[in-house]
Design a protein around this nucleic acid. Structure first.
Lengths: 382, 382
DNA sequence: CCTCGCAACTCATGCGCATTAGTAACCGGA
DNA sequence: TCCGGTTACTAATGCGCATGAGTTGCGAGG
């Protein structure tokens, strides 16, 4: 009594071999391997009768599948706290997993010292407990990703991430296309001198925005001057900088947006201080997502379809698991959706510096937030 | 190329046996089994050098440990919506797990048809992927729990749950003591006819409140009349019922409280309609927890220390894992904390029915909620 | 009557690790 | 010289399952 029941127990009871039990229980009976329907049913019945439940560990080790997808986040999400940036991804993942009748396994790890989470942290790759993995989070150790690929572990990264020399499968938002589209709109409205404001990190999302920025100009037969790209920390955006750019002819800005809208907040604050009205004096498009109650509510912008990305990632992973060659690289790009706002207008030449300030209300940061300098570290944009 | 590295690979490279590698890597070298320090260091170095990482699956199958605790919730937690009832438990669990340098694995399962989640749902007990399990949630299939016990899987349930014939380990809130204490307060204030209002379900938390109610009376040398226990659905609490009880001499109520305060809300609404002021006409204690912005803000009540319970559960489980006999039953009771309110007063005899309504403000439900009839299904009280 | 072919199963092996019962080598004491 | 006792390591086995290569029995075709 007390021990759990194995296939061997069933086999013994029926006087057949463990292999037969395995074949029947894994549903290969009749199709792949011939088993008489009577025996098949008998085994099935006996298994149920004896209360058999497969051991997922043994199944994994023997190369079988458990219909289990591992989810690993490089950012803290466990236990899934308040709705944060990653929450919609998880929602989408769960939806699709449930639809596909896969179960999920969410991993936590004690952050390894400096608050970073690592897959291999504790000496073992726990992801292997699942059939495949879904990874997300901002700045994972790329070496870990590369190693996962090398070890042929089937996984999909959510968010574009290129790892040198490793064919990484991912689901990414189309930042390039969305940026090109918004910037194209500005160009169509007559803006000739547009400034791209991005963070200073060299992550893919930022690179993508630059690429889209250039593409929009290419399409319009323009060229981008180096001065048009402003890589800056939020604290570096002040009224003086904006006025100086105004004097150099800048009539529109495309500002990188992330979950917290740091850059956007800083920009709006600076514009208000410089008494530059949006969109009358400068037009503004925000390249990316914004928190629901965030700073850039009224901005013309685009949103990342996070739930959809989660769903697509699950499908991609399952396809991979069911493919002959799970090491094949697969990538999906999910379009962003445009969100209309009221921060874009036709180009209007700058007023001379001397003109007295008008009272026409500009878009301002909703609440007087703490200065940009107080802001915490960067937030993800996927 | 590309294959992951096994102990055998290290052994081969060093010209030693896999067993030696295993012994060294599991830290038994020198202590349990003699290995020369030089070889030990060499193995350690080579393992790191070759990028060895243990396979948790193989380790489990061979009976080893992975420092992994499984968490399974019978209610939907993944992804957790807004901060819900179970969130604090998870927080506590995570804290303690991190402190003990254990990792967590959170399982989701596609709800099996009727929205119920089940451990054995998908034909395999996925919990086995971890070294042990923490289970929580309202109304699990008791048979599943019993089976887990039978199969000697080490786990701890959070919340008291007795399963017939199975020695279940759990961490529970002391509903009995907390109830006895609050009701004892009422008695001390002169109340002689106190009514216990509970839900109709026969779950342990409800039973515990009844027990505590009786105990308080015992301690005071009183006996509880059957009429003093009112098992009722929220919809069944109306002004007429309260007035009738008032006429029978009831001067105080002890109402079972759960996360959503359904019963409490219904009671307060009915009291307001019946023009019974709290605490002037009737005293009220709430037996249990209340949502932060819930209905019973000002009520005299007690709270369950959910985070603490989570922490204790982790410790209990780890103890169990490290014990010789993991099948030993272990139980912990965590006291509740009293929360003062303004709904309790000394006994005052009821006014005659004919007295005109006064304007003295009673405690009322903060917002005019939808009638109790519209409320969704019951919510957990652990 | 002797194959051939197919249906119905079984044998044997391995997944990567932990563990128990060894064995071989060496050393000191009598 | 022989022996008991260490020290340092290895052989072998099993965990529970999946899987590919058999093996057996039997009816049909030549």
């Amino acid at each position: 009594m007390g021990r759990r029941i194995r296939q061997a127990d069933i086999a013994l009871k029926l006087g057949i071999s463990q292999a037969t039990v395995s074949v029947v229980l894994s549903g290969r009976a009749g199709r792949d391997i011939a088993i008489s329907p009577e025996l098949r049913d008998l085994v099935l019945f006996t298994a149920r009768d004896m209360g058999y439940h497969a051991d997922p560990v043994a199944r994994s080790l023997a190369g079988g599948r458990n219909r289990l997808l591992g989810v690993f986040t490089f950012e803290p999400v466990f236990p899934v706290g308040q709705r944060d940036f990653f929450h919609p991804f998880l929602l989408g993942i769960e939806q699709e997993a449930e639809a596909q009748r896969y179960d999920l396994v969410l991993f936590t790890s004690a952050t390894d010292g400096a608050g970073r989470r690592s897959i291999y942290g504790s000496g073992t790759n726990r992801l292997r407990l699942a059939d495949g993995g879904l990874l997300l989070g901002l700045a994972p150790d790329r070496e870990e990703l590369a190693r996962l690929v090398r070890e042929q572990f089937p996984f999909v990264f959510i968010g574009r991430r290129d790892v040198h020399g490793a064919g990484l499968s991912y689901v990414a938002a189309d930042y390039v296309g969305a940026t090109a589209s918004l910037v194209g709109e500005l160009i169509a409205l007559g803006h000739e001198n547009i400034c791209l404001v991005t963070g200073t990190a060299d992550l893919e999302p930022t690179v993508d925005r630059k690429t889209g920025f250039v593409r929009a100009h290419d399409l319009a037969g323009r060229t981008v001057r180096p001065a048009s790209v402003w890589e800056v920390e939020p604290a570096g955006i002040g009224p003086a900088e904006l006025l100086s750019r105004r004097d150099q002819g800048v009539t529109a800005y495309a500002v990188e947006g992330a979950a917290d809208g740091e850059l956007v907040g800083a920009f709006l604050a600076a514009a208000a201080q410089a008494d530059l009205a949006v969109p009358d004096d400068v037009s503004l498009v925000v390249l990316g997502d914004v928190d629901e109650d965030g700073v850039a509510q009224r901005c013309t912008r685009f949103a990342v379809q996070r739930e959809e990305m989660g769903r697509r990632a699950v499908r991609l992973l399952i396809d991979k698991l069911e493919a002959e060659d799970p090491s094949e690289v697969s990538r999906v790009t999910v379009p962003c959706v445009a969100i209309p706002g009221d921060t874009v207008g036709v180009r209007r030449d700058p007023r001379p510096t001397a003109t007295p300030p008008r009272a026409r209300p500009a878009v301002r940061p909703p609440r007087p937030r703490p200065g940009p300098t107080d802001q915490p570290a960067k937030r993800p944009s996927s």
